[in-house]
Design a protein around this nucleic acid. Structure first.
Length: 272
DNA sequence: ATATGAGCCTGTATGC
DNA sequence: TGCATACAGGCTCATA
């Protein structure tokens, strides 16, 4: 399930194939994604050059010549693979980015929670992006930001850091991991976490995301890198998916609860 | 303004 | 074996 590290892994995998190539066309086999794909987009972007491949939160941004761009979200079951032009399609191969090099960037998404949008020269101003919080790996994100934004809020701290308007790219897996490292109980009200502990949490969010990117992401069920290989970060997970198993720090059995309809694993001893 | 729950989807795992 | 059901979850929208 792609979170920020998986999207970044995808971006890095596609980069050498995509940048500087011409987009000969988009083949859209399935328009029914998270939002219906605009039928006119293929005609408008065909023939443009891909000048850059960027990421904002969990959105991949294809910057195109002529003041255009494409926003691709992988949803939770999506991935993009690099394949040759005549590679047979398989189930859920929804969109092809056909490049002039004979390479195809093929978007596959079984659950169709992903999306494809056209934007202009300033994709950050697209309605889907303009209200997003800071990038977690940027200097704009730190403990002070979390502390200020959480004052007076009673939501569980885990839900706060998973809110894309607070900070982007922290999904269920990495939220649980970062909170365990910081020793913060996931259901603690966000407004009742100290400035000092938020500084630690911001540091741990950066660390866990950075390490996951280095490991090529986390492959649980659906995710695969653009080269088809799995990510390896799941071998490093301390709490996610380990309910009932021993905490690596204290040996106590990890507990599982639900926060905002999401499975949440934590150590009842180490996290307060 | 903040918080909560529903809904979008389908593959996989579980229980009968 | 086959069926039904629960679950996974990023994101937005509707409602309280």
């Amino acid at each position: 399930m792609p979170e920020l590290p998986e999207v970044e892994t995808t971006r890095r995998g596609l980069l050498p194939y995509a940048t500087g190539r011409r987009l000969d066309g988009l083949r859209i086999r399935e328009h029914r994604l998270r939002w219906p794909v605009d039928p006119g987009v293929a005609g408008r972007v065909a023939g443009r050059d891909i000048t850059a491949l960027e990421r904002r939160g969990k959105y991949l941004i294809f910057r195109l010549s002529g003041d255009a761009s494409l926003l691709l979200h992988l949803g939770m079951s999506g991935h993009v693979r690099v394949v040759a032009l005549n590679t047979p399609v398989v189930a859920h191969d929804h969109v092809d980015f056909v490049l002039d090099s004979g390479v195809v960037l093929r978007f596959n998404d079984p659950r169709r929670f992903g999306s494809l949008h056209e934007a202009g020269a300033l994709p950050d101003e697209h309605p889907l992006l303009e209200r997003l919080g800071p990038e977690p790996l940027s200097d704009a994100f730190d403990g002070g930001h979390l502390w200020r934004i959480s004052r007076g809020r009673r939501v569980a701290v885990k839900n706060l850091i998973m809110d894309s308007h607070v900070v982007v790219g922290v999904g269920n897996i990495y939220a649980a991991e970062a909170l365990h490292r910081s020793g913060i109980h996931p259901s603690r009200p966000a407004g009742r976490v100290s400035q000092r502990r938020y500084a630690q949490l911001a540091t741990d969010i950066k660390a866990v995301l950075g390490e996951a990117i280095e490991a090529g992401g986390t492959t649980l069920r659906d995710f695969a890198r653009s080269d088809g290989l799995p990510g390896y970060f799941q071998q490093t997970l301390a709490v996610y998916g380990r309910a009932g198993e021993a905490c690596h720090q204290c040996g106590r059995a990890l507990k599982s609860t639900r926060l905002g309809q999401r499975a949440t694993v934590y150590c009842p001893a180490c996290q307060r």
